[in-house]
Simulated scan of single mutants.
Amino acid sequence: MKENVLKSFVRDTYKNTSAIPYIITGQVFMFVLIHIFELLSFDEVIAIDLFQWTYQHLSLPTSFNTFIQQPWSLITHPFIYKGIFNILFDCLWLYWIGNIFLNFLNNRQLLTVFLGGLLIGGLLYIGMSSFPYFSSQAKYWNTTTFGLAALVSSVIILVPNLEVNMFIFGNIKLKTIAIVYLVLQFVFLALEIPAAAVIYVIISFFGLCFIWQLQKGNDWSRMFKKSMRPKHLRVVQGKSIHDAINSNRKHPSDLPNQELIDQILDKISVSGYESLNSLEKEILFKASKQDE
């Protein structure tokens, strides 16, 4: 009997632990919901303008006084979109860049970069919008713009030599695409909301710093990690990565300890991901999935 298409789609979409499908689902759900509210308000089915009420109470306000009355907006504002092209554009970038990120790092690190960009950017936006110079042009803020800024900027350092086929343009390095994206977004924001443009630069730098620190062995996402270390860890020194991995694995599915994973990450920071052999890539992949 042929499997139901919808059931198969749901299973394949949500079968892994990646947060990306859940974030996109939330964005699409809220987009549909608030536009249903807009339709009901337009047809005068309901007495109040439920669309405008929802938009204002779930979007990020421009003052601390209003924010105190709706603190949940710091969490809900990335899910609010008015235009279909805006949500389509952002969802495609999140899906594409997010999955490239997850090919090299884990879900916890993705969420640290993406949500960190959203939360830090949101708080900065409220603060900067209170300044007289920016207040006149400030407006309710939503979308995942700040989170995408951190995520897109992070891949510039993470995989600087990764090439992407751009059809008629041929192969282009991902860092070139990322830089063009960031510059264009900055220009658009500068013309419309100067405060957001300034914050956009700050959050982009946050994404760069996350990877810089990771390459130095400082993983900022570890503060959100539950302790899962084995009771007995043996520090491996004076061995190659290949020998150390094999000496610490009793079974092919066993994971190496953190020292070995750090050695692989150090090798990436020096020579790039392409320098890893198949065994090292396998270990890093398994570690990233188990570490989520």
Rank of each mutant, 00 (worst) to 15 (best):
F186K: 02
I24Q: 07
Y22T: 15
G117I: 00
L111N: 11
T112V: 08
S288G: 06
P160V: 04
T25M: 14
S130N: 07
N103W: 01
T54R: 07
S59A: 12
S41D: 04
M30Y: 15
I177Q: 00
S227F: 14
N103D: 15
I211M: 09
S278Q: 14
E38C: 13
V198Q: 02
K7A: 09
D219K: 04
I177L: 15
S41Y: 10
L214G: 15
V164N: 00
Y133P: 02
F85D: 14
I68G: 00
F29W: 07
S129C: 02
S129H: 07
G272C: 03
W53F: 15
E292M: 05
Q213N: 15
H242W: 08
G170D: 01
L115K: 00
P71G: 08
Q137A: 10
Q290V: 12
I46C: 08
V5T: 14
F146G: 03
N106D: 12
F224W: 11
F64R: 02
L88K: 08
S204W: 13
T143S: 13
N99C: 05
F51D: 04
L88V: 13
V164K: 03
G207T: 07
G117E: 00
H77A: 05
K286L: 07
D12A: 10
L88N: 05
G121F: 12
T176C: 08
L124A: 03
P21N: 07
K286A: 12
H77Y: 14
N218H: 14
I193L: 10
F42D: 13
S247R: 03
V152N: 13
C209A: 12
I172H: 06
E192G: 04
F186G: 03
K82C: 03
D254I: 05
P194M: 01
F104N: 11
K267Q: 02
L33H: 11
A138F: 10
L233F: 13
I172E: 00
K225I: 12
N142H: 10
Q56A: 05
I84K: 01
M228V: 13
F206Q: 00
N65W: 15
Q185G: 15
N4E: 02
I202M: 08
Y273D: 00
K7D: 05
V187W: 09
L119P: 01
F104Q: 07
L184P: 02
N4P: 01
I23L: 13
L105H: 05
E259G: 12
L174R: 01
L39D: 01
N165S: 15
K7R: 14
K226C: 08
P71W: 13
N4A: 09
Y22D: 09
L260K: 05
L74N: 01
I211N: 06
S253R: 07
I46K: 06
Q52N: 07
S129M: 00
D90H: 15
K2P: 14
N103A: 11
A19Y: 03
